[in-house]
Structure formats: structure tokens, C-alpha cells
Design a protein around this nucleic acid. Structure first.
Length: 205
DNA sequence: AAGAAGATCAAT
DNA sequence: TTGATCTTCTTG
């Protein structure tokens, strides 16, 4: 983290997906003129996780191979919605994977996001991975973009929010949403009692 | 060439 | 609960 700007650098994503996913809760994600507090994420691991794209998509394995930690992995789901991930790579133990951004509590650019979403209520803007990408205007055009550049004009990046109460608390772990394999892994992370999450804790089918 | 599955969402 | 919608990958 850059102490001056609070921006999370490449080092943050040179760790295991579960750590990154858990610790992103409470950080701010900025994209163009919009931003929000990350309130829900999921971790996916290249190895030992059958729900990860690397398990059944050669193209995903190639992506992991060819890009550095902190790169955006954006793909179209169900033919309709773009989902936004961050590539993580731990050079120490060889672990690689993704963090799926699932929900934000909107902070900046709410009116732009309302327009893009066609919804008024704040809780309808970014309360799901497809909604979040739509609200921010993230599409397949941004697949492969770097989210940890130090350049000031970079389009998207994370900022840690200084908390006077010490490390982030109230982060719950739950099973991931919408997957059919490796369902037993509790790799979804969400802010406790936050109105902007996609699915409440414990409501997973 | 054709089929199936899929990290979703909104309307019914 | 269902329909919309399309890319990637597998099979024939």
C-alpha cells in the first residue's frame, strides 16, 4: 500500500486468493469517476478448486500464465453480464487464482451508475457481480487491464480505507454463489449486515 | 456442425 | 420459477 494515496499495489495481489478476497472487504474500488466500498468478494484457486475457470477453460489457464498479479479478468456470463475479477499470483508458494468482485456499497458517481443500471435505489446499483460491472461500465474491453498501476491516470484501482478501529472487522465467510462444483469451500466474503451484498449470509442454496 | 453448461438478473 | 442471451469448450 502506498501510504500517501492508500492505493493497493501489486504486492497486495501477490498472495493467495482467499487472503486477497477477505482483505479487500472494506477497501474502496475506484473506476473512472465512480467508486464504492467492497462489501462482497469470492476467491477462486487455479489448483484444487473445480469452480475456477482454470479447471475447465484452457483460455483461463493461458490468461493466468500470461498476465501479472493485479490484472483484471473480465468475462461474459450467461451471455448477458460481465463479471469482474482480479488475478492473484503468489510467487512464494506458486498459488494463483482470482478474486471475483461481487458487490460494492456505492460512494462516488451514483447518478452515472443509476443511469447505467436503469435503477434508482442505491441498493440496486452494485449488489451483485453483474450489476457492479454494469454500474461501473466495465466490459470485455477491459479484460487484461492493470488495476495496480502506479500511474495517476490509471482507470481502476483499490484504495484501503484507514480505519481508526484497527483491522477490518465484521467480515463473514460463506459458501460461494451460483456454482455447482467445489460448493463446500467457504470462499465468499461479505461485510456483516451490509445492505449492498448480493445474497445475505447463510442464504446460499 | 451442433450441443451443453455456465461465478446472473429481473420479471412473473 | 423462468426466460433472456452468447461464449467457450467438447463431441461427432
Amino acid at each position: 500500500m502506498d501510504p500517501k494515496t492508500g492505493r493497493l499495489g501489486k504486492a497486495f495481489f501477490k498472495r493467495d486468493a482467499v487472503c486477497c478476497a477477505r482483505e479487500l472487504i472494506g477497501a474502496e474500488f475506484r473506476w473512472d469517476g465512480c467508486s464504492g466500498i467492497v462489501v462482497e468478494t469470492e476467491a477462486y484457486a487455479e489448483i484444487g478448486d473445480e469452480a475456477c475457470h482454470t479447471f475447465f477453460r484452457p483460455s483461463a489457464r493461458r490468461f493466468v500464465e500470461e498476465h501479472p498479479a493485479g490484472t483484471a479478468y473480465v468475462y461474459l456470463n450467461y451471455g448477458m453480464y460481465w463479471l469482474t475479477n482480479v488475478l492473484v499470483k503468489n510467487p512464494l508458494n506458486g498459488h494463483r487464482g482470482f478474486v471475483l468482485l461481487r458487490a460494492l456499497q456505492p460512494v462516488h458517481g451514483c447518478d452515472v451508475m443509476r443511469e447505467r443500471r436503469g435503477r434508482d435505489r442505491l441498493t440496486d446499483l452494485c449488489s451483485g457481480p453483474g450489476k457492479l460491472s454494469m454500474a461501473l461500465g466495465i466490459t470485455g474491453d477491459h479484460h487484461g487491464i492493470n488495476l495496480v498501476d502506479d500511474e495517476t491516470e490509471s482507470r481502476g484501482f483499490f484504495r484501503s480505507i484507514p480505519s481508526k478501529n484497527g483491522p477490518q472487522r465484521g467480515v463473514l465467510a460463506d459458501r460461494r454463489i451460483g456454482i455447482s462444483r467445489s460448493q463446500e469451500l467457504a470462499w465468499r466474503f461479505l461485510a456483516d449486515d451490509n445492505a449492498h451484498v448480493s445474497v445475505r449470509f447463510g442464504r446460499v442454496k
